[in-house]
Design a protein around this nucleic acid. Structure first.
Lengths: 343, 343
DNA sequence: ACGGATATCCAAAGCGCTTTGGGAGGAAAG
DNA sequence: CTTTCCTCCCAAAGCGCTTTGGATATCCGT
């Protein structure tokens, strides 16, 4: 049924060499011939056999990732969404995954095994922590990798894709300050992850620039579940000098926060303003909240896709992508932010 | 660095044929010779090249799965845990994954593409629903598969691994009845998934056998998050004729339920009894609950591993595993169940 | 002692692709 | 008109494994 290179070459009256070259973009083939080849590919539905390519090129055509087995990580919506982006893109290029579950303490060994197995061409790393030791490890492994996020307190000489968390929360905070808010709270992700650290930093910077200070009592760190959002918000509302605005590190947290606010009988956007970071989770759209949410937006799925793209391009040496990318998050103002209520 | 078959054969003064046969368990090789070969493998650390094996055998050495992109599925802890089991086992045998994210409406096409790609030797299916159309689809695809769970209202002629959900909740319910409980509630998973359906059935059966009835007001279906557990339990407690015992379909649900009970000032195991189904999530152990939880236990991770094992054995035609398995869940009595309180 | 099993082993032919090392033919250069 | 240089194409050699189709040697019964 499926044709192979040899048959395709015969069909065209060409040699396998030429057909192979035409397909792989080598220069020493006539433009017209190349067109004929491409046309024939379309007609026959020819797809190169990956196993043969692997054997011939020594490439594995697959990317490895260590799946962390730890509380609140593999389990969370955000991970699934990111994985979806990665998977979508990988499948397009007919790339495989090697998913290696590993407890944090074995991670190092797992990476090494994976790299040594010859079964993956590249590795992927996420959930960056401050001074993350895994980066040095990966560098020593002589296998390409991309990290999602950035470490803190490390040299910056490794490939990454991150969003400008500092900038996003700086912008969000400044918007709130401009609206007159003085008491602003933060419901953040786990405190050891760098994105949380940076978001808090962005917020603090904006406050300081406007002569305000970050009140530590108004900052909560936790796994990003709706439950934690609910509890944090409840506690904030009980605070003697309750905040008039709150930043959430995820729409999932915001979900819980909104619930707490409603329960307290307050009006979002009037009594209290809310801005959430939106990872663009398909089942949780900020515009569908009862009061549409002002957000800093950056798609996690897109990030997953982009990382796959870069990893694959790196393996195939096709296309040229920047080694380090910092995506800006868009600040999208909706109804959940309004002027600070008068005392 | 790494030796290949040829080198290994030379080293041993044998032909590649013989070495290959020795390794793959063919009979036409002297026992002593085989030992020598195995010894040499140990010494050299020889590992067959998977790409070459793929090419020679036509097998892909990888298993495909469609990752559902839908609310409360890919996102949940249970999925992660299951995936971990699958991944662990697959990696042991040096198998790959092809993770194909897909929205429910494209699932069919995704499966077909995956099967046709020649990139996977077997498929895996989960989140069974009643009358699940995907089973007939997979059967028509002429590619081996195993489903996790069972459909309802379908012929039973397909390979599956399921746990005896009916039995588990039957047992749990009977225990509660024996303890004198008459009003028993159920906090269940989504109502369209077969495990939920069966658990409710098991519960109903036990009740009926003891002259009791399932009160529909005491049954909630929802995604299995701690939040939903909390809310359901809260509502049950407000019920005019509140239950004295509750079954939860997951320890995650139980987490929320326990919170609601504590908040209401009730004592677990005395004022109200609780039994949860325990998927053996490493970060949520029933014995670590403030009042250790009585559970029906069956490890999700083990199920993932077992499915990988079966799939792999099927591909390799090594080992003989039953085509259909129904695992019993163990009823483990801890402190959360006690005699029904006197009115 | 001999034909025929039986037990072990081997050479060689693929699997489908990439890549090396030319070769033919025409254009540009001398 | 020869020499050199491109341009475009091809034959063939792998990549590392499995598997077919024998070989060779041993051992059996008769």
């Amino acid at each position: 049924m499926a044709v192979n290179l040899k048959q395709l070459a015969e069909l065209l009256g060409l040699s396998q060499t030429t057909v192979s070259r035409a397909l792989n973009g080598y220069p020493e083939v006539n433009a017209e011939t190349r067109q004929r080849v491409l046309q024939a590919v379309r007609e026959t539905g020819y797809r190169p056999n990956r196993a043969a390519q692997r054997l011939a090129t020594g490439k594995a055509y697959s990317i490895g990732m260590v799946m962390p087995i730890a509380a609140g990580i593999d389990s969370d919506v955000h991970f699934g969404e990111f994985l979806a982006g990665l998977g979508e893109e990988a499948v397009k290029h007919d790339f495989h995954f090697v998913l290696n579950p590993s407890a944090p303490e074995d991670e190092e060994a797992t990476f090494q095994r994976l790299a040594a197995s010859g079964n993956v061409d590249a590795l992927f790393l996420a959930y960056m922590r401050a001074n993350d030791p895994r980066i040095a490890m990966l560098k020593s492994l002589s296998i390409p990798f991309v990290v999602h996020g950035r470490s803190i307190g490390e040299t910056r000489d490794y490939p990454f894709l991150d969003i400008d968390n500092t900038g996003a929360f700086y912008d969000a905070t400044r918007l709130l300050i401009q609206l007159g808010h003085q008491r602003i709270a933060l419901i953040n992700g786990p405190d050891y992850l760098t994105f949380s650290i940076r978001r808090m930093k962005g917020m603090a910077r904006a406050l300081v620039e406007h002569g305000l200070n970050l009140d530590e009592a108004l900052v909560h760190h936790s796994l990003m579940t709706d439950e934690h959002g609910y509890r944090s918000m409840q506690r904030f509302l009980q605070h003697p000098d309750a905040p008039t605005a709150v930043l959430c590190s995820s729409t999932v947290l915001a979900l819980g926060a909104v619930r707490a606010i409603n329960q307290a009988g307050l009006a979002i956007g009037r009594d209290i303003s809310l801005i959430a970071h939106d990872d663009v989770l398909p089942m949780l759209k900020p515009e569908n909240f009862s009061v549409p949410l002002t957000t800093t937006r950056s798609s996690l799925r897109a990030a997953g896709g982009r990382i796959a793209t870069r990893l694959i391009a790196g393996i195939l040496k096709s296309g040229d992508y920047p080694d380090q990318e910092l995506w800006r998050a868009e600040l999208i103002v909706r109804a959940s932010t309004g002027p600070a209520p008068q005392k």
